[in-house]
């Protein structure tokens, strides 16, 4: 009897103090049947990766509105890899110019969602991608 849920960490790295968007996305993901761990504000990349490890999440979603995304996203990625969590799907959102989004996606971020993305689209995208991954693993992880 298996009961596999998608587990997602929603985190706010760095110094910006606005988490309304992160909370909105967290709520929408919950309403799509996911188990969402919300870390709160002002997280370092180390803290986010450590929480991802302890919580065994499938997806890490970062919200950054401060403009420090080119600095913070790669550091989170590196911290995850250092813990053997290179498989974890990374997504992000916030005020990220398209050229930066393209650069980050090229570095291994699965997907960056810009301002104005309908929240439903984010949830559906994660579900579809995780569905493919779980099917490839035969339903387990």
């Amino acid at each position: 009897m298996t009961d596999r849920k998608i587990r997602v960490l929603v985190g706010k790295p760095g110094l910006d103090g606005h988490d309304r968007g992160a909370k909105t996305v967290a709520t929408v993901l919950r309403d799509h049947g996911m188990e969402v761990i919300y870390t709160g504000l002002h997280q370092t990349p180390e803290m986010i990766a450590e929480v991802a490890a302890q919580e065994d999440v499938d997806v890490v979603g970062l919200s950054i509105l401060s403009g420090a995304h080119m600095e913070l996203f790669p550091r989170v990625r590196a911290e995850l890899e250092q813990r053997g969590l290179g498989e974890v799907m990374l997504v992000g959102g916030g005020i990220i110019p398209p050229e930066d989004a393209a650069a980050l996606e090229a570095q291994g971020y699965a997907r960056l969602f810009g301002p104005g993305t309908p929240t439903e689209e984010i949830a559906e995208w994660i579900k579809a991608r995780m569905g493919e991954r779980l099917a490839a693993e035969g339903g387990g992880a």
Binding site: K5, D31, M34, E35, V36, Y38, T39, G40, E55
Partner: peptide
């Protein structure tokens, strides 16, 4: 209804995240 959950207890234990002597699971 959805089977999903918002797990937020860690927020009040944030200072423990960097402590290797503590493991927290939601």
């Amino acid at each position: 209804f959805s089977g999903g959950a918002l797990l937020g207890d860690r927020i009040r234990m944030e200072e423990r995240t960097s402590d290797p002597g503590v493991f927290i699971r939601s």
